[in-house]
């Protein structure tokens, strides 16, 4: 009994325990080949620079069958992170019906040929839409842009006479545009060692719509001279541009160990 815990005994015990762990894992996941799949590890993907790949697209759509409208954006790549800034602007009236869809089409590339070959071979679920989760579109701290115009003249952001953004502008911008559900479609493209992905943000709730006619010129607390100049005009219209941020994790689990749940 004492000899069981010598060096040889401990090594044998360790091997036996590891074997039991592997068996338990395979039994738990219901896949007898789980140990083989785990040994392959995960694949290494990166975003493809837009200068090389022109498949990138950002557009908005009202409802699943509505017309698609392209929107402008600035794109920046940092290996594993794709930053899309200055999207739009999108008119808030698109949110009124609660069926806005924001579509982002991107491309990624595997770091080695083996990975993309495996991705293509594993593609039993490729092309299928996968629900990732729900995220809120929340107002970010970037200073909002605002303008009062009368059809001829424009006053607001950028004017030397105006020091800061009036408080009324902040109070008019909703803190959040509500939750959006995220769906992802991934397709392997073996011909150029890349993959195309589509992220769809689907609006799930209607944000609070600002009632018309509640904004008065005096609420802006503008400098006296500017106020007199603006007040001489008729048919004043305020336009406010706010920024809302989001972060979406790209899930590539279907091409890694374990695969997608079927």
């Amino acid at each position: 009994m004492h000899k069981l815990f010598n060096k040889t005994g401990l090594v044998l015990l360790s091997v036996a325990l590891l074997g039991l762990l592997g068996t338990s894992y395979a039994g738990y996941t219901g896949e007898l080949s789980a140990d083989t799949e785990l040994s392959t590890g995960s694949m290494d993907f990166e975003f493809i620079d837009m200068e090389v790949n022109e498949d990138f697209l950002i557009c908005i759509q009202k409802g699943e069958n509505g017309n698609i409208q392209d929107i402008c954006a600035d794109i920046d790549y940092d290996g594993k992170l794709l930053s899309v800034t200055d999207m739009g602007p999108i008119d808030m009236s698109w949110l009124e019906d609660g069926d806005l869809r924001i579509i982002i089409r991107y491309a990624i590339k595997a770091s080695n040929e083996h990975s993309i070959m495996k991705a293509a071979a594993t593609g039993k679920n490729e092309g299928a839409t996968r629900y990732i989760g729900s995220i809120p579109l929340e107002r970010i701290s970037r200073t909002p842009r605002w303008y009062i115009e009368n059809g001829q003249d424009i006053w607001g952001s950028g004017d030397d006479e105006i020091d800061s953004v009036p408080q009324i502008v902040y109070s008019l911008l909703p803190e959040t545009l509500g939750d959006f559900e995220i769906y992802q479609v991934l397709t392997a493209k073996a011909e150029d060692d890349g993959m195309q992905g589509i992220i769809i943000l689907v609006q799930t709730e209607v944000p609070v719509i600002i009632p018309e006619g509640q904004v008065t010129l005096s609420q802006f607390y503008l400098p006296e001279e500017l106020l007199q100049e603006i007040s001489a005009s008729k048919d004043l219209v305020l336009s406010v541009h706010g920024c809302y941020g989001f972060e979406i994790p790209i899930n590539l689990d279907q091409f890694n160990a374990g695969g997608w749940p079927l």
Partner: peptide, 11 residues
């Protein structure tokens, strides 16, 4: 991998 975005909305 992740996508970070800033969308501009106006009214």
């Amino acid at each position: 991998l992740s996508i970070v975005g800033e969308a501009g909305f106006e009214f």
